[in-house]
């Protein structure tokens, strides 16, 4: 177990393993994304109340779910970065932030597009939408804060602290539809009780959530590889790799 963690901290090992994973995972993920699109768009029945606009759910919900989960990944990497000053954790934190920000953006934009025919407005200052907007600002804040520092170790520490403090927002987003009166519909899938969603609609949604998790993994790994090669450009393994290429 410890040997594995030790290896995880080794840049050349991580670079090659991530490369091997990406070679398979990217094409599989993109293929399953197309399958999920077709399933959600063409092969499910419309919602009895929302009609066909509910099909936006198949991109909106997965993006939002993974944007939230991704924040925990970033905050965990930030915590490791602050406590143990681990180089790989800093790289992971920085790799996660733009992916999380883009997923949050997808959730917000598709939510707005869904809101127009359903609520009659592109945007409402509702507990759920506002807390998601704060999530986007937190992701952007982590990126900007790191870049603002001349001294990168100070930058990663400050960004790590912001990432950790921002975790307060995640349960607020989850619970916003229960704690406040909200236009946003409550969760249709719960871990504890039965799901308020028909199984023919649930399966494509579960597929899309899996696809988005996989996309998140791909993008974070790919971003980490870019950071690694830039940061380690003076080391011998990068030289060998570049010369072999």
């Amino acid at each position: 177990m410890w040997k594995f963690f030790h290896k995880l901290g080794s840049p050349p090992w991580f670079y090659s393993i991530a490369g091997a994973i990406l070679r398979w995972l990217v094409p599989i993920t993109l293929f399953l994304l197309i399958v999920g699109y077709a399933w959600g768009l063409l092969f499910t029945a419309p919602d009895f109340r929302q009609g066909n606009s509910y099909r936006i759910m198949y991109v909106h919900v997965p993006a939002a779910v993974v944007a939230l989960a991704g924040y925990y990944v970033m905050a965990l990497a930030g915590a490791i970065c602050i406590i143990w000053n681990m180089k790989m954790a800093e790289i992971a934190m920085r790799a996660t932030a733009p992916v999380g920000a883009l997923l949050t953006l997808i959730a917000l934009v598709t939510g707005g597009i869904w809101g127009k025919p359903t609520w009659g407005a592109w945007w409402v200052w509702d507990a759920r939408t506002t807390s998601m907007l704060i999530l986007l600002f937190l992701y952007i804040g982590v990126i900007v804060l790191y870049e603002a520092y001349e001294d990168k170790s100070g930058g990663s520490r400050a960004a790590g602290i912001l990432a950790l403090v921002g975790t307060v927002n995640i349960p607020i987003i989850y619970k916003s539809v229960d704690w406040w009166y909200s236009l946003h519909q409550p969760a249709s899938i719960t871990f504890t009780g039965g799901s308020a969603i028909e199984s023919s609609m649930l399966y494509p949604l579960l597929l899309m959530i899996t696809v988005f998790y996989s996309l998140f993994t791909c993008c974070v790994l790919a971003n980490m590889r870019v950071s690694l090669i830039k940061r380690e450009s003076r080391s011998s393994w990068v030289r060998t790799l570049v010369e072999e290429d």
Partner: peptide
Amino acid sequence: MGGHGTYVWSAY
């Protein structure tokens, strides 16, 4: 899509 096509397709 029963009038929702613009919304659905633009979201995708």
